[in-house]
Structures are given as structure tokens and as C-alpha cells.
């Protein structure tokens, strides 16, 4: 088939499927206007943004670094930029490592439990926190941490002001606990469904060979989780630069930003409190591009190890 014929064929096919084109149209348009146009909007990182002129009408940046002038502010505010990026990465690492560990441990524990009804009852309670919005969690955390009426200070007889700078390093622990409380029950569901699919004959064979419970877990249960764990880890790499603003902006009440400030919460703060977007726009651009590069690399790796789990 020649190229021309091919193109003709394509158009004929598309015309034949015009109903399907129409069916795809609503999603296509919604995605275009609400996801694709904002991608284009990232060019404000290269513009001298003036709210009056809007994104598209603003002039290109032409400072010391030419069109890249906004990125100069990342270096001018080096300390802030590195702190925000560092915190973003730090929390990603803590949450991913501890989260995966707890997810797996919980999944294995519930899977090992002989009292199946009890297991599923507990599991359905453990999932609940994921459905509580961080706007509400903020108040729950406050109930524990308030200086005067908070439960922690009362129970342990402390007078610490948890939201003041004196407590800034505790927030790494607090945020980790809140995040784990929120996500572990839900996160383990996926691993449980993998464990439910493990061939029971493997366990029977192991029992006959005289393996005890721990040996069975070590040699059968955990290895069966490895593919899913590695895939989930690799895919989460694409989110390295993203953080949950609910946690970092709401729950912290945007205090102690030295230890709790991340790129996303900073951008959210900046939108509401400043009109100079040179730093935030450059940081946003950096965030999106790094995310893209990392997920492409991660996908390539997954494709090598476990092709059926690759995204594309």
C-alpha cells in the first residue's frame, strides 16, 4: 500500500467510525481544556508574567539569563529552592520506604490470619482513614497537638507548642505518622489481592516438607509479593516531585516550613499570597519536567523487568 492509499484508508476508517469519534469527543475536549492547555501554560516559566496580559499575552522574559530569567530566581533563592526540593525528596523517601514496609507487613499479617471473618472486618476498619479529607484530618491532628487542650500535652504532662518552631523536627515524625495512618490500610489491599492469588498447593507442599510458618512466609509469601512491590516502587518514582498538599499545607497549617515545606505546598501558598510568579513558575516547570523524565526512566526499567506491568 502506498502512503497516499494509507492516508485515504485512514480517513475512510475514521469516517466509518464517526460515531466513535463522537463518543470520544467529550473526554477529548475536557482533557484538552483542563489538562492539555495547562501543560502549555507552563511556558510562563519563560515569560515575564503580568496578570493584566495573561499567560499568552505576557512578554517573553528577557533579564540577565534571557528567556530563562525566571530560573535565575531558583539560584538567587538557592537556600529556599534546595530546602523545598530536599524536603520533597526526603518525605517521598520516608513515605515510600516505611509505607511499602507497613503495607506488606499488614497484608501478610491479615493473609496469615486463620480467622478470615475477623481479618476482613479489621481490614474494612483500617481502610476508613483514606476517606477522611485532610481538611478534616487537620482538626483531628490539632486535637492531639494543641498546646492547651491537646491530648498529647495533657496525657504526658507537657507544655510544648507543637506548631511553633521549637518543635520543627518533630514534624517529620508527625507527618509520617499521619500519612501512614491515612494510607496504610488502603495500600495493603493491593498486596492482599496478590496474596489471595498465591497457589495454596505451594503451602501444602511446604508443610509436607516440614517447613514452619516463618519459613513458609519467608520462602513463599514474601517472594510472591516481590514483583508487585517492585512495580509499585518504580511507578511511584514518577511522583517524586509531587506531594500531597493536604498533608503539607493543611495539616501543618503551613507552619514550620523549614522542615515541612515542599514544592507543592509552596506553590499553593504563593498563588494565594504573592503576585510575583517568577520563582513559583520556574519551580513548577522544574517539577513537571523532572517528573516526566523520572517516569520515562522508571517505565523503561519496568519494561525490562516485568513487561506486562509497563505503562506503555
Amino acid at each position: 500500500m502506498t502512503r497516499k492509499e494509507n492516508i485515504l484508508h485512514f480517513f475512510k476508517n475514521t469516517w466509518k467510525h464517526r460515531v466513535h469519534v463522537l463518543m470520544a469527543l467529550p473526554t477529548f475536549l475536557i482533557m484538552f481544556f483542563f489538562l492539555y492547555v495547562p501543560m502549555g501554560g507552563l511556558i510562563i516559566a519563560f515569560k515575564n508574567f503580568k496578570p493584566v496580559n495573561g499567560i499568552w499575552g505576557s512578554a517573553w522574559a528577557n533579564g540577565k539569563w534571557g528567556v530563562f530569567d525566571n530560573f535565575r530566581f531558583l539560584l538567587v533563592n538557592k537556600a529556599r529552592f534546595f530546602r523545598l526540593t530536599g524536603n520533597t525528596l526526603l518525605y517521598f523517601l520516608i513515605f515510600t520506604i516505611i509505607g511499602t514496609l507497613l503495607n506488606v507487613i499488614l497484608a501478610v499479617c491479615i493473609d496469615q490470619l486463620v480467622f478470615k471473618k475477623l481479618g476482613s472486618a479489621l481490614q474494612s476498619i483500617l481502610i476508613i482513614p483514606i476517606f477522611i479529607s485532610y481538611a478534616a484530618v487537620t482538626f483531628i491532628v490539632e486535637a492531639y497537638l494543641k498546646a492547651d487542650t491537646g491530648l498529647i500535652n495533657n496525657v504526658f504532662g507537657l507544655t510544648r507548642n507543637w506548631y511553633a518552631q521549637e518543635s520543627q523536627y518533630y514534624w517529620i515524625l508527625i507527618l509520617t505518622i499521619v500519612k501512614m495512618w491515612n494510607s496504610v490500610g488502603y495500600g495493603s489491599v493491593l498486596y492482599m489481592s496478590v496474596l489471595a492469588g498465591v497457589d495454596q498447593q505451594l503451602y501444602e507442599a511446604a508443610q509436607i516438607d516440614g517447613a514452619n510458618k516463618w519459613q513458609q512466609i519467608w520462602h513463599i509469601t514474601l517472594p510472591s509479593l516481590i514483583p508487585m512491590v517492585s512495580v509499585m516502587l518504580l511507578l511511584s518514582v514518577g511522583n517524586i516531585m509531587k506531594s500531597d498538599t493536604g498533608l503539607f499545607y493543611q495539616v501543618t497549617r503551613y507552619t514550620n516550613t523549614d522542615t515541612t515545606g515542599v514544592l507543592d505546598s509552596y506553590v499553593l501558598y504563593a498563588i494565594q499570597h504573592t503576585s510575583d510568579f517568577s520563582f513559583p513558575s520556574a519551580a513548577s516547570f522544574f517539577q513537571s519536567v523532572v517528573g516526566l523524565v523520572l517516569i520515562l526512566i522508571a517505565n523503561a526499567v519496568v519494561k525490562k523487568i516485568q513487561p506486562e506491568y509497563a505503562l506503555f
Partner: peptide, 26 residues
């Protein structure tokens, strides 16, 4: 035949996004 294109079109937003600031301004 347009299916391939539409699949990729729906995948891209997972890989790349404009972020909060750009969305807000748009």
C-alpha cells in the same frame, strides 16, 4: 484506526502535567 492516537492522548496527562500554578492561571 484512531484508537492508537486516542490511547496515547489519554495516557499523556499521567506522565506530564501543568501543575497547580499553570492550571490556576489558565
Amino acid at each position: 484506526r484512531l484508537r492508537g492516537f486516542l490511547t496515547i492522548y489519554s495516557m499523556i496527562p499521567m506522565l506530564f502535567n501543568g501543575g497547580t500554578l499553570s492550571g490556576y492561571l489558565v
